[in-house]
């Protein structure tokens, strides 16, 4: 066992973990933060995306011991204390950027990272920025719209012709 001490969604935690424990396992099984999900076995899908010291990572591809001393933010730490949704969460709801919702925690965490680095991304930059996040339902158009909506750039101008439910 190895002792780790880190901040998760603003709370300090200290635990003894097996070195082989993955960060996603630690979050879900030790801390009960099941908002972060596992969608694959190959680190391809991005469903498990969280922020480690402010940058997006795939938590299925990081050991919990590697996060010792770090600050982790999960999808459960985005909303305000009073339950107010984060603007990116709000945008996904507004633009119907999900169907089954399984990819959504990862999509939202990656979008927050993307917009922190590039507050007004082009459609291409959005698609490239979300390259590591797979969605089996939406065909991505409404996800791209949601990101544009959150960025406050002309939502509804993606290359698909369909009318979005955007404001």
């Amino acid at each position: 066992m190895t002792r780790i001490s880190l901040t998760v969604d603003g709370q300090q935690v200290v635990d003894d973990v097996e070195p082989r424990m993955l960060l996603v396992q630690y979050l879900r099984e030790k801390l009960g933060k099941t908002g972060t999900v596992v969608g694959c076995d190959t680190s391809n899908c991005g469903a498990c995306t969280v922020h480690l010291d402010g940058r997006s990572v795939k938590s299925c591809n990081v050991l919990a011991v590697q996060a010792d001393g770090a600050a982790v933010t999960t999808i459960e730490g985005l909303a305000g204390d009073d339950g107010t949704l984060h603007p990116v969460q709000e945008a996904f709801r507004e633009c119907h950027g999900l169907q089954c919702g399984f990819c959504t925690p990862g999509m939202i965490m990656q979008t927050v990272d993307l917009l922190a680095e590039n507050p007004s991304p082009s459609e291409e930059a959005i698609r490239l920025g979300l390259e590591g996040n797979l969605c089996r339902c939406t065909g991505y158009h409404n996800i791209v719209r949601a990101v544009q909506h959150a960025a406050g750039v002309s939502a509804g101008s993606t290359s698909s012709a369909g009318e979005g439910a955007t404001a």
């Binding site: 795939k58 990272d113 996040n133």
Partner: peptide
């Protein structure tokens, strides 16, 4: 190379 999350690590 890879994707944003992988490039961060």
């Amino acid at each position: 190379l890879a994707d944003a999350q992988v490039r961060h690590r």
